[in-house]
Nucleic acid binder design. Structure first.
Ligand SMILES: NC(=O)c1ccc[n+]([C@@H]2O[C@H](COP(=O)([O-])OP(=O)(O)OC[C@H]3O[C@@H](n4cnc5c(N)ncnc54)[C@H](O)[C@@H]3O)[C@@H](O)[C@H]2O)c1
Ligand SMILES: NC(=O)c1ccc[n+]([C@@H]2O[C@H](COP(=O)([O-])OP(=O)(O)OC[C@H]3O[C@@H](n4cnc5c(N)ncnc54)[C@H](O)[C@@H]3O)[C@@H](O)[C@H]2O)c1
Lengths: 207, 207
DNA sequence: AAATTACTGTTATTTTCATAACAATGTTAT
DNA sequence: ATAACATTGTTATGAAAATAACAGTAATTT
């Protein structure tokens, strides 16, 4: 169970868990693979295969124990003490993300923000302190922050990423349109909105 | 060239184009596959394979004609008159996206926004009119909008998507965490930030 | 002129992911 | 008791994507 799961399976596990938490509030204690599948608009086989990969096994004709499954997924995705997240670049997008996560209760908590604009630093956004970028390395190490969200302009993103790698960061979510280059031990997820929209445009084309 | 390209190839084409536009401003007229590859931190083979798929061929020992390639990619991704985009839900994220795209000049233009909050409707955000959600179907049809960005709360997203499908929308980018279900002729791209962060968390875990 | 080099374009292989097929088994219906 | 059913878990197959291998060729070097 310690071996690395496929990327897509991990994505779906996260979604299963949220769907299940929601389902649980309806009072039901068991759920069939095809019910989970319906919640996510995928197939029941996909669900069973994912659960097989994490070694969780349900009961024949009864399905899966919802609470148990939620817990197992938690053991896989979460660490015991949770992981800490920093947001770099408190512009429109950065602030929007901070606001969004301040409500959520997950094992991931945004504990620091960084910006290079003195008008934005030393203030609190969505309950989180924003420091000057020069303090980033120090604070990331001190706080044990392991995940960073990059929402600075493209030109700055490369520098920021380099610094992050030096601090020993382990995961990066990059919203800038600049492709980043990080060593293999840092998990990088790029999200380039323009690319996504242009891809949609291509597939939305008539003909 | 009319046959559908692989999803990932289309993504990269969008990125090649932006990298090339940038490269062009440096004055160079030709570029090698390995130079394109370096810009994106991918391999040269990947680049050549993608270009093969779109049927563009460079010159031996000289590489690719940058302008020509930019133009070819444009012919693939863009339509002659561009496509129109609507943003549904003008909250923190929706406004952030509107602001972001108002600067950019692409063949994709955000031409309308929709919200159900009367305090937000009938105003202009980033140069774009925000209408009441009840007018959505009408305006999408009238304006010929083909792509929608969904940034309403999860509970609302399903309804919104159903309406969008009925208007004949062709592509959807969904930021809500609710998995949507659309017919095959609508291209759907989901982006669930929590899932992405949890995935990063999993791969960032020590062990 | 022959060999080497530096590229492109294509085919072959591998890897990752999704889907299909089916065996196993307890439950319900007859 | 037997047959039909509903559901899980696993193996087999297929599809999409990335990578590797290599053939072709013009320019450059020897
Ligand atoms: N706003 C969006 O919806 C959106 C959408 C897609 C992509 N993006 C990308 O996300 C990034 C941020 O977008 P935005 O709209 O929030 O831009 P923004 O200009 O509003 O914010 C950028 C922030 O980064 C800060 N910054 C700049 N350089 C910095 C540095 N070296 N160190 C620390 N902070 C620095 C700025 O002070 C500013 O607060 C950009 O790369 C943009 O391309 C944004
Ligand atoms: N803010 C973020 O950075 C962020 C990050 C990840 C995901 N999301 C997702 O994006 C969506 C929007 O997030 P947000 O932070 O902007 O929320 P928000 O509450 O600030 O904005 C939601 C907007 O949608 C409008 N709305 C609600 N119901 C509507 C309906 N039926 N029709 C039209 N408009 C409607 C509201 O009036 C509001 O303006 C949510 O689904 C959220 O989960 C947001």
């Amino acid at each position: 169970m310690n071996k690395k799961l496929p990327d897509k399976t991990v994505e779906r596990l996260s979604q299963y868990r949220r769907a299940l938490l929601n389902y649980l509030s309806g009072g039901k204690q068991h759920i069939f693979s095809h019910e989970i599948a319906n919640l996510l608009h995928i197939t029941a086989v996909q669900v069973r295969r994912d659960l097989m990969l994490i070694g969780y096994t349900g009961t024949l004709r009864q399905g899966y124990d919802v609470k148990e499954l939620i817990e197992i997924i938690g053991k896989i995705i979460d660490t015991r003490d949770g992981q800490k997240v920093a947001v770099i670049g408190i512009g429109n997008l950065g602030r929007s993300i901070m606001g969004y996560f301040s409500g959520k209760r997950t094992r991931l908590s945004i504990v620091a923000a960084f910006d290079n604009n003195p008008e934005k630093t030393d203030k609190i956004y969505a309950g989180v302190q924003c420091y000057h970028i020069d303090q980033m390395a120090e604070i990331i190490k001190k706080e044990g922050i392991s995940i960073a969200v990059i929402s600075v302009p493209g030109e700055e993103a490369v520098k920021v990423a380099e610094t992050l790698v030096m601090t020993g960061i382990r995961g990066i979510l990059n919203f800038s349109p600049k492709p980043l280059n990080v060593p293999a031990h840092v998990y990088l997820q790029e999200y380039d909105m323009i690319t996504m929209l242009e891809k949609i445009a291509y597939f939305a084309k008539k003909g």
